[in-house]
Design a protein around this nucleic acid. Structure first.
Length: 925
RNA sequence: GCGGAUGUGGUGAAAUUGGUAGACACGCCAGACUUAGGAUCUGGUGCCGAGAGGUGUGCGGGUUCGAGUCCCUCCAUCCGCACCA
């Protein structure tokens, strides 16, 4: 009887769906386990073999947990708002909802083929009004909250208003970028628009004019993590800085907690480090410098207050607001010219221009707070307006950039470190003691730092301060295909839409482009197109892509709930995601924002945990092997091994990899038929009459013609083979190029497994007493498997099955017990074939996934006749405690006489015995 | 520049607390059966050597009875951040 994978897999796909095998409900009798995949954006290209890698791993783990007696939540959904559908809409006029719907249908079809155990009744889509109703609702909660620094948590804004009413701004300890001073009476006298303006400086979701990354080509603002090398992540368009009124999220208030929380979660060091870098905490002090002949003060941030006596000049960012105020008449022209020049430079130019030192003296002097010395003030574009205060106190002897600047403009470099040579470079280490530094003389860095801050605070010219690289997250997009804000304006004041009007659904528009006067697309909608139009106008911006993905893991717990984003009971049952699998490209985007929202919702009392993802695994990327052919100046396509040494005039073209044979040669006729430009292609073949291509590893993408789809492989080898092969490829977390060649090995293995049950052509197992050798094989496989799963080592897991089946085949094992156990073990990896076998082993059973792993039960392992430590590759290790004086031969004799050694050897002689003095004996059978 | 990771056969990779390096699979070689197929089965396969044997986990050192594994120096590749004061 052949292994008919196509019919078997089709049969069980249907059965599982009809029976609702994978539906889960809360069950207080069972421990819960939540396994989650990062939900995909449903793009028009469909899935390639790289996408399911993480899904397969999580599916195996979810099934394993389920078989181990856990109540497993394993849902899937779609991050269905996004740019590509909108771009397509702009080009074709087709509503993005239709495109999205079609793409989702295609995704679902592909996902179903792979046999995943998702509970599809819990599917969520971020673009579904029933879902984004609650995204809007959460926005409202964040709008109505501020961050209390004292309590170190978010609080309802009403408490802040109460405090203002009672005692003004005096004792307020709320996180804000600005400081307000008013009394209770003054507060009460303010107009409501003035009050709102102040409250905006405290709300977690707030409206503010801010420098934003503006992408003219996309007509929208982008977050920092949506920009790669100065161009937009999607589309690669240039990005410039622009000041705009935008919604933002006060994530900076959570900077410290986002750092601390990392110590409590099980993520890789690499990823935690990325988030730490992104948050970029640095401790130091802010110091105010007085300006000679001017009332203005310049505030600087420094991480080295101990070097304050080494200051010999100051540098402001060209955009610094004080520059125009302080510039002297004689320097005005030069300063303005420089300002213009640096404003023209894009962020990218500035970055690539690191080595060119530039700057201008503005003709003003600051006064040193301790020595009263005059310090020339310069502007220079190495100082960034957006970090710290946009101004630095330059200490050329201790900072390389300041040093270079001083050298270039021949400014003094005062030496304040004992015995340090400053002739070539600045001294940036922290070992030397201070000198020429008044009250800091002779101190080491650490104590000088403390003393300097003390002195600065005592003098009232500054204080110890911590700075973060992390910026508040811009939350507005000038786009159509996103969540509308639950916000309207009345006389310019933003107001929240009441809950009963939610969701504010996306209005229909006549085009998905900005209006003529630059308003976002939603401004095109007449009032009548809104399901709820209030005030003077609605908010025309939409939310960014990360809004919906910052909380979706909560909605899976209770996706149909019309009254709450999820019920308290269900939230308390499922709690955190126990295992989250997805790509590392979300390290500083989604994973940070989701943590932020989770903490905010926790503070406001909606959930009982403040970290969303307890354990996270980043699956590696599956890359494609592009096929590159060479076309010479004479337009002939030249075989790669026939290329001349000199290839000028040759161009590289990428060829659809389906047209390449296993020996790297092109199927010439197929190429001619593929694209019109190759219809009459001439070739230069090699000695074998073939045209070879070069292989290069790229991201898997349509544009490189290197995509391999799971559909084709499922058709050819079956989903079970594909699942196991993807796991077999290598460690889950490692990136690797896709190579289909090895898949036959896994396919053969499944055929071998099938044959175990069909030795004589029909299904046949025997209820005999299992042989000792078969039990040995089974038990070592169980131990190995349990261990592999604990370590998420799925590749070695697959190998273990191969070894097990090889051994059982050799033993001609037809024992029911042994084969049943093996089948349960393998079911998470190859669900279809194992379910089919199971239905024959246990004709009355419903599903193999309703079983429990007796295997991973301690008691079962105790009962086993092989309760000594045995490693998987047949190696047996004995720990013995013998005198060191014994010879190796004597030790060997002693060990061979041990009862467990006798049992292990079963009368056979060991192939090899390795004796290590006094400690361990290894024996190989 | 800073931070993180990775270097093992022709290839993907194993090696769990330091204990036979290369399991398992692909590929390749030889053979069997064949309606000569991209089927199936058997055996072999790190490198050098006819052989015994030698040698071998990016380079060089160290600790240890014993190092792919631990420590130090260097090299290469990949990823993230980058004028962050």
């Amino acid at each position: 009887m052949e292994y008919e994978f196509r019919s078997i897999e089709a049969k069980w796909r249907k059965e599982w769906q009809q029976r609702g095998t994978y539906k889960v409900t809360e069950d207080s009798n069972k421990p819960k386990y939540y396994v989650l995949d990062m939900f995909p954006y449903p793009s028009g290209a469909g899935l390639h073999v790289g996408h399911p890698l993480g899904y397969i791993a999580s599916d195996i783990y979810a099934r394993y947990k389920r078989l181990s007696g856990f109540n497993v939540l394993h849902p899937m959904g779609y991050d269905s708002f996004g740019l590509p559908a909108e771009q397509y809409a702009i080009q074709t006029g087709q509503h993005p909802a239709i495109t999205t719907e079609q793409n989702i249908a295609r995704y679902r079809e592909q996902l179903d083929l792979m046999g995943f155990s998702y509970d599809w009744s819990r599917e969520v889509r971020t673009s579904d009004p029933n879902y984004y109703k609650w995204t809007q609702w959460i926005f409202k909660q964040l709008f109505n909250a501020y961050y209390d620094v004292q309590l170190n948590k978010a609080q309802p804004i009403s408490k802040l208003i109460e405090a203002f009413e009672a005692m003004g701004s005096a004792k307020i300890n709320a996180h804000s970028e600005v400081t307000h001073h008013f009394t209770a009476a003054e507060w009460k006298a303010m107009s409501s628009s003035k009050q709102e303006e102040i409250l905006q400086d405290y709300r977690l979701a707030y409206l503010a004019e801010s420098w934003v990354n503006w992408c003219p080509a996309l007509g929208t603002v982008l977050a920092n993590d949506e920009i790669v090398n100065g161009v937009s992540e999607r589309g690669g368009h240039p990005v410039e800085q622009k000041r705009m009124m935008q919604w933002s999220m006060r994530i900076k208030a959570y900077a410290d907690r986002l750092l601390d929380g990392l110590d409590r979660i099980d993520w890789t060091d690499a990823l935690k480090e990325q988030q730490r870098n992104w948050i970029g905490k640095s401790k130091g002090a802010s110091v105010h410098f007085e300006v000679k002949g001017n009332a203005a003060k310049i505030e600087v941030f420094t991480t080295r207050p101990d070097t304050i006596f080494g200051v010999s000049f100051m540098v402001l960012a060209p955009e610094h607001p004080l520059v125009t105020v302080l510039t002297s008449a004689t320097c005005k022209d030069a300063v303005e010219a420089y300002q213009k020049e640096s404003a023209l430079k894009t962020e990218r130019d500035r970055q690539s221009d690191v080595k060119n030192i530039s700057g201008v003296f503005i003709g003003a002097y600051a006064l040193h707070p301790f020595t009263g010395q005059e310090i020339p003030i310069w502007i220079g574009d190495y100082v960034l307006a957006s970090y710290g205060t946009g101004a630095v106190m330059a200490v050329p002897c201790g900072d390389q950039r300041d040093y270079d600047f001083a050298r270039h403009f021949q400014l003094p470099i005062p030496a304040i470190f004992e015995n340090v040579d400053l002739s070539e470079v600045a001294y940036t280490e922290k070992e030397a003691k201070l000198t020429q530094s008044d009250f800091l003389n002779g101190l080491d860095v650490k104590s000088a730092m403390e003393k300097a801050i003390e002195a600065i605070e005592a003098k009232g010219i500054g204080k110890g301060k911590t700075n973060f690289r992390l910026r508040d997250a811009v939350f507005s997009r000038q786009r159509y295909w996103g969540e509308p804000f639950p916000v309207y304006y009345e006389q310019g004041i933003p107001k929240l839409v009441n809950d009963e009007h939610l969701p504010i659904t996306l209005p229909e528009v006549d085009a998905y482009l900005p209006t003529a006067d630059g308003e976002p697309p939603l401004a095109r909608a007449p009032k009548s197109a809104w399901n709820c139009a209030l005030g003077d106008r609605m908010e025309f911006n939409t939310m960014p892509g990360w809004a919906g993905s910052s909380w979706y893991f909560l909605r899976y717990m209770d996706p149909q709930n019309q009254l709450e984003f999820a019920s308290k009971v269900k939230l308390d049952y499922w709690k955190q995601v126990d295992l989250y699998i997805g790509g590392s490209e979300h390290a500083t985007g989604h994973l940070l924002y989701a943590r932020f929202w989770t903490k905010a919702l926790y503070d406001l009392g909606f959930i009982s945990f403040d970290e969303p993802f307890a354990k996270l695994i980043n699956q590696g990327m599956i890359l494609g092997k592009s096929a590159i052919a060479y076309i010479g100046p004479d337009a002939k396509m030249v075989s790669y091994d026939m290329l001349p040494a000199e290839t000028t005039g040759f161009r590289e073209v990428r060829i659809l990899i389906d047209l390449i044979n296993d020996d790297e040669s092109i199927q010439l006729e197929a190429l001619r038929a593929w694209q019109p430009q190759y219809a009459d292609q001439q070739f230069v073949t090699n000695a074998a009459g073939k045209v070879l291509v070069k292989r290069e590893v790229d991201k898997m993408s349509k544009r490189w013609y290197n995509v391999v789809t799971p559909d084709d492989l499922c058709e050819k080898y079956g989903a079970d083979t594909l699942r196991m092969y993807e796991m077999f490829l290598g460690p889950l977390e490692q990136s690797k190029p896709w190579d289909t060649k090895g898949i036959t090995g896994v396919h053969n293995f499944l055929k071998k497994y099938w044959r175990l049950f069909h030795l004589n052509g029909t299904f046949e197992v025997h209820d005999t007493e299992p042989s000792a050798t078969a039990l040995k094989t089974l038990h070592k496989t169980i131990k190995k498997l349990a261990d592999d799963l604990e370590r998420f080592s799925f590749n070695t897991g697959v190998s273990s099955f191969m070894i097990c089946v090889n051994e059982l085949t050799e033993q001609k094992c037809t024992n029911r017990h042994i084969l049943e156990q093996l089948t349960i073990l393998m079911a998470p990896y190859a669900p279809h074939i194992c379910e089919e076998i199971w239905s024959k082993l246990q004709p009355t059973a419903t599903s193999i996934f309703d079983q429990q792993y007796p295997q991973f039960n301690e008691a079962y392992l105790q009962e086993s006749t092989f309760d000594y430590p045995v490693s998987f590759n047949g190696k047996m290790r004995f720990k013995v405690n013998l005198p060191l004086t014994l010879t190796p031969q004597e030790v060997q004799a002693h060990v061979l006489a041990l009862p467990e050694a006798q049992k292990w050897l079963e009368g056979n002689a060991p192939k090899k015995v390795i004796v290590v003095p006094g400690k361990i004996v290894n024996m190989v059978l």
